[in-house]
């Protein structure tokens, strides 16, 4: 019993150390931080203007109100900048391989996926605090109540759903990282990954505008759980049974992804150890 507590205590200490590392990473370059904030603001602005413009053309095409659509755009722009998947675990893996320090990571007495998860959590938390909060605050000042969630419950459920989506995105990026590790081709694999997320996660164009076959594909695959599900909950488009099913979809996929990560890592680790000697 006490050894279990000790293990948990150790994990918490490690998590904190990696969190600190994440914050250091986020704040290492002053100008990079301001550029990130600026890019987020431009993205928010663009999303809001585009949805408002389209709303003026044909309001009947939207399953939500004008202000809900604005909220979707604002939160989508900000979360997709905070959970920046250009620089996730996959990038880190490729970087460490290039530096040749990956063996050092593997030798540490903590599981490698857990290390990456801790680092990425740290970086994302710092980004949420330093970029997400100011950007959302700015949007709220300019746009007023339009950026608010559909209700208290919708807001809370959306946060819960985003937590699941965070874990899902980590698993996807980690698996992509293993592909990078195997093919040693960071740029190509990352562009493909980016394309898939852009198409199927709903952070740019919500899935409800998709033609039926594409919609079906997006609904089945896990990627909608990363942005579309939490965003739809946030603006109140998903309620009742559909909301429960969407959450179930997220949780089931997260479970599958975790299994995939464990399996793929076990296989890859064996191979790395054999190769690395």
């Amino acid at each position: 019993m006490s050894s279990a507590t000790a293990t948990v205590g150790r994990q918490v200490t490690l998590m904190r150390a990696f969190l600190r590392y994440g914050i250091e990473q986020q704040t290492a370059y002053r100008a990079a931080y301001w550029a990130h904030l600026w890019n987020t603001a431009v993205k928010v602005f663009a999303f809001v203007v585009v949805w408002r413009t389209l709303y003026a053309v044909a309001p009947d095409q939207f399953p939500v109100s004008r202000s809900q659509m604005v909220a979707y755009g604002v939160v989508a722009a900000i979360t997709s900048e905070v959970l920046d998947w250009w620089k996730g675990p996959h990038y880190y893996i490729a970087y460490r391989v290039q530096l040749g320090t990956i063996t050092g990571d593997l030798l540490r007495p903590i599981s490698f996926p857990f290390q990456l998860f801790a680092i990425w959590t740290g970086e994302s938390a710092a980004a949420l605090l330093l970029v997400g909060v100011p950007a959302f605050g700015g949007a709220a000042v300019v746009l007023g109540g339009a950026v608010a969630p559909a209700g208290v419950l919708a807001g809370l459920l959306a946060v819960l759903s985003f937590v699941v989506s965070f874990a899902m995105l980590f698993c996807c990026s980690f698996l992509v990282g293993l592909v990078v590790l195997k093919t040693l081709n960071l740029l190509g694999v990352m562009h493909l990954y980016h394309g898939v997320l852009t198409l199927l996660s709903g952070f740019w164009i919500p899935l409800w505008f998709f033609p039926a076959p594409l919609r079906l594909l997006a609904d089945v695959l896990p990627f909608r759980g990363i942005f579309f599900t939490p965003l739809s909950i946030y603006v109140g488009e998903l309620t009742g049974t559909r909301l429960e099913l969407a959450l179930l979809h997220q949780v089931v996929w997260l479970g599958l992804l975790i299994l995939a990560v464990r399996w793929a890592w076990a296989v890859m680790r064996r191979r790395l150890v054999v190769q690395g000697g």
Partner: peptide
């Protein structure tokens, strides 16, 4: 330190 780092983003 983290705090000084954040501060340096405003005043190098």
């Amino acid at each position: 330190g983290a705090r000084a780092k954040v501060a340096r983003m405003f005043h190098p």
